[in-house]
Design a protein around this nucleic acid. Sequence first.
DNA 1: AAAGACTACGCAAACGTTTGCAATACAGCC
DNA 2: GGCTGTATTGCAAACGTTTGCGTAGTCTTT
Lengths: 341, 341
Amino acid sequence: MQTKPTTIKEIAQILGISVSTVSRALHDHPSIGLTTRAKVKKLAGELNYEPNQTAIFLQKGKTHTIGVILPELSEAFFSSAISAIEDTAYKKNYTVLLAQSHDDEQKEKQLVEKMKNHRVDGLLVSVGKSTSSYQHFENLKKYNIPVVYFDRIPSIPNIHYVACNMEIGTIEAVSYLLKKGHRAIGMINGPQTMVATGERKEGYIKAMTKNRLKYDPSLIVSCDLTEEGTKKALDELLASKRKPTAIVTFNDYVALFAIKHATKLNIRVNKDLEFVSYANLPLIHYMENIPAASVEQFPYLQGQKATDILMDLLHHQDTGSTEPSAFYKVIIESQLVENKK
Amino acid sequence: MQTKPTTIKEIAQILGISVSTVSRALHDHPSIGLTTRAKVKKLAGELNYEPNQTAIFLQKGKTHTIGVILPELSEAFFSSAISAIEDTAYKKNYTVLLAQSHDDEQKEKQLVEKMKNHRVDGLLVSVGKSTSSYQHFENLKKYNIPVVYFDRIPSIPNIHYVACNMEIGTIEAVSYLLKKGHRAIGMINGPQTMVATGERKEGYIKAMTKNRLKYDPSLIVSCDLTEEGTKKALDELLASKRKPTAIVTFNDYVALFAIKHATKLNIRVNKDLEFVSYANLPLIHYMENIPAASVEQFPYLQGQKATDILMDLLHHQDTGSTEPSAFYKVIIESQLVENKK
DNA sequence: AAAGACTACGCAAACGTTTGCAATACAGCC
DNA sequence: GGCTGTATTGCAAACGTTTGCGTAGTCTTT
């Protein structure tokens, strides 16, 4: 019952011709006669011949495979992104080798090694929360394996990346609330260590000053993104002398925690207290009490763009130049979308 | 700047010995002298030697890679499963080749071919909604590529699978509602074409008869799982002569659609009308108005078990036997969990 | 009729590894 | 000194493909 896959050799032997002829015939090489070409193709069809990719990989030194390393596969944001990556790669006939780092720098390093040994043609990376050194990625340059970072990008020069600029989105979010008449706008921000936290704060301040309003530091509170932390943060905001009538939260999780807590405090959500958040939950549309608006970060788009860039790099690396002089730096502007209820 | 990876040949040449000696030395083959072994390893370390996996793949005919084909990467259920698969495979030193079918049978077929050509050692599959023939998977048997199905499994004999039995969970769900005093229990079920729809219905009926209650067919309505369809289904149920006081829904999406609609109809959720659903949204914990209980389907566990089984098959296929006489058929009992609010 | 130009194909190396089978060297033994 | 034994290493084939180059045979041209 066990069949070994047909090889080019067997076809050659049966037809009494050489393997090179068979190979060329299958590739429609012009130097092969029409009759032989037809014979070969016919037999190949009958024997269900499929080229052994591993042999081709070895021969060509290319695997037509891209590696993807990201922190957490089960997170909605990343699963959207990986979906985009797979879709895009598939269209270009590339295959996806997948791995998750669980935000562990050690594992991330091992994964890079593994990907290298698998001879992936290129790598797509969203770096772990705690990753502090990027040497393991930089090493790949030596082996001519291009890396494109997305969403969580390292803060080093000379890299290709796709990321979402939170500042603009934040400005839009705050402006949206200002336009609606709010003056005391609070912000439940993330931990100080994250880049995104800074971007949000900057955006907040810019929006205020742009509208000639003074910025009250007590209206921005940090939070560790847990439910407990969010509760505390909200309590803190509500206790401040200028009690906010609207709040911008770090992400949807935080928003929902806060909304839950607020409801318990008998605050009417989006009436007494309006919420705007950063979208990372596609499911927000299924709920009743949701933020009035969300800043969209386009995970699918980010994955798609990153893959496109990688494909581009892969196609252009054959043609000559060693070290690229220019780097792709794609910024996707985050965008405020009003949530219809 | 561009470095070609070091090969075993280069090491051999520098040391003036043969490649076979180098290969054996690196593998601690006993027939290699201690001094040469040490020399080889030292140089290999210095030159940063890493074996070229593609060459090993070709040579060994094994890739240490498993393919995963599932319908939709961005679905919470599957992203949980894939996370489990990656984790489990990684521990056993396997790599994951990922692809999504988008529930398209044609694409599914192509993906199987692709996986085969990539010479994956085994395959993990959750079949598409509309897949009607399983020949493309069955063909793999001939090539000695084991397939393990999970969650959405084909209804054919002689396959390995891991799945969740909905019947038990449904019995539990209905019993739960009965115990709470409900007598008119409705069900918004899925489309007739899905296996899971039948299982749910069976469970429903069994729970009723077990409790010596008559089964009223008008209390089970089908639905296409869209928001519109759910609304219609709920309206239909509410209009039936025995207006239900509780409803079991096909999944969380349906539950949320129904809850949303019910709220609009001024029905007090979980008071006038209680909901129980099948969990596929991890995020349900962030919301206020949620089903009172959910039937858990354990995506992570399913992915883990399926991978374990595949690993087991891969290790035992070397040792002799051709066609397995026994098949893994793992049923994970779905379980009712009460949702704390 | 001979030189040139095509046409159609085969040879063999190469990609980097593993591994069965020699082959070499040197020891100890009778 | 020949013999067996053991420890160490090399040769070469194999995995399945691609591809540069060489070479028959056929056709055109003058």
